[in-house]
């Protein structure tokens, strides 16, 4: 158990972070905080991916000088993916923020609880 914790602390940290973000997104009524939660959640996943991608003792996948064989470099895919992910997250955040502004214009508040009624459950 301990060894698992020791060897996987990055993953565990990201999962904890994910939980934090998730719960913020889910439970907070303030829209801005919700968006922050969303970002925390997304970021935690990016971190998670990247920790998976990193293998200790390897180099970045940039051939600097001679090619040292495939085993010398970390896999570049997670990093590449995460770039896309960040873009997606950013656009989502942007959209959410824009919507928040609209929301504020319409309702004069950014507190979701003041606006949502019980219809729709």
């Amino acid at each position: 158990m301990i060894s698992f914790l020791a060897s996987h602390y990055f993953q565990i940290g990201t999962v904890i972070l994910f939980g934090v973000g998730f719960m913020t997104l889910l439970l907070n009524n303030n829209l801005i905080r919700k968006i922050i939660g969303l970002n925390i959640m997304d970021t935690s996943i990016f971190l998670f991916f990247i920790t998976i991608g990193y293998t200790g003792g390897r180099e970045a996948p940039i051939i600097n000088g001679a090619f040292k064989g495939i085993d010398a470099y970390v896999t570049p895919i997670p990093t590449g993916l995460m770039l896309t992910g960040i873009v997606v997250a950013v656009s989502t955040t942007a959209f959410a923020l824009a919507l928040t502004i609209l929301f504020y214009e319409r309702f004069g508040t950014i507190d979701l609880s003041e606006v949502m009624d019980s219809r729709g459950d």
Partner: peptide, 17 residues
């Protein structure tokens, strides 16, 4: 009052639900 309404609403609908 509005807050109370919302809370009560939420609670009750949540409970029934």
């Amino acid at each position: 009052v509005r807050k109370a309404v919302y809370r009560a609403n939420f609670n009750i609908s949540t409970v029934t639900y």
